[in-house]
Simulated assay, not measured.
Amino acid sequence: MAGMQGVSKRWQVTERDVAWLAWIGRWRGATSVQVSAEFAGRGESAPKTVVDRRLRGLKEIGLAEMHRMVHDLPSAWSLTREGMNVAGVAGRVLKPRLADFRHDHEVIAIARQVAVDKPSHQLVTEREIRRLETPDGGVLKDPKYSVRMMGTGRSLRWLYPDLVSVSPEGQTWAHELEASRKDSRRLVRLMMAYIYADHITGVRYYAVPQVEATVKAAAAEANAAAAEIGRPRKIFVQPWRDISPRPATSTSRGRALPPEDAYSE
């Protein structure tokens, strides 16, 4: 296989391994449980025990790294530069960050749920969006997924969704996990950036219980402002599970996405 010169003969890298590496490379890091769930969801054989064993082998030959982040979640896996080369993943080598790990872990759960709810949608991760649409010198023409915040010159900045899903008809939906407290004014400003972004059909905010009321109030204000200026209602709020630290035996699950006419294909 191309890019495998010098790799230990003890482990023969398979096409399935490469597919798993490529998927992990879409994120800052992912657990073996998530790899197993993703590929099982595609109808492929990916028992966790097999995923664990293969990832340990890929670590042994220098394609992957394991990171123990928090006590109540499984270890995360990321790609080395060689692993990125083998999987065809471009960009910088990234590793999980402790400060963002719970958030990143949960966004993958959201992506799996969106894939089940809307199997015909193409998913684009934040890492992929940043790789495709990080502006050079502050200039980005015709973004497909990112959103320009209000302002000009040095105050100009870009908003990168946690996740994007694109329908076969080309409707682009942003998905944002809200798991930490934000000032309501800031939330409204972020939501209004999406309201003004013509290439974004709508945004679904997944709000944990601690911030759900604040996010819903901000969404109502942003949607009301949109109506006043003749723009469509774009902001929708989905309650999400509590992701604060908890015992590893917790079996809490995310709630299913409710039917939403504005989110129909």
Rank of each mutant, 00 (worst) to 15 (best):
R131E: 10
Q34D: 06
Y160I: 07
P232N: 09
V116C: 00
E176D: 15
A217R: 14
S8G: 01
A99K: 14
S32W: 06
W11T: 05
L156V: 08
D136Q: 10
G230E: 11
D142W: 08
L123V: 05
S155L: 08
E82S: 04
W11I: 09
G29N: 10
R231I: 10
W173K: 00
G6Q: 03
E221Q: 15
Y160D: 03
F39K: 00
V237K: 12
Y205D: 02
T214H: 13
A213F: 05
L123R: 04
W27D: 03
D183G: 01
R233A: 13
I195S: 03
D104P: 07
W240M: 07
V208G: 02
V237Q: 10
D17N: 07
V215K: 12
G153P: 07
I110W: 07
A174P: 08
A218L: 14
L63D: 02
A64N: 01
R54G: 02
E82N: 02
R255F: 10
V7Y: 02
V89R: 06
R102I: 14
L177Y: 12
A218Q: 12
D162R: 01
R185F: 09
R54L: 01
L94I: 08
Q34Y: 02
T251H: 05
R189E: 03
S252Y: 05
A111V: 01
G230A: 04
V211Y: 01
T249A: 15
A197L: 14
V107A: 11
G25D: 03
K59P: 00
S264M: 06
W23A: 08
A197N: 10
A262T: 11
V166Y: 09
T172Q: 03
S244I: 05
R255N: 06
K59A: 12
I24M: 04
S78Y: 11
K95V: 13
A262Q: 12
A256R: 14
K144S: 09
R154N: 06
L58M: 13
P74H: 13
E221Y: 11
A76H: 15
G29S: 09
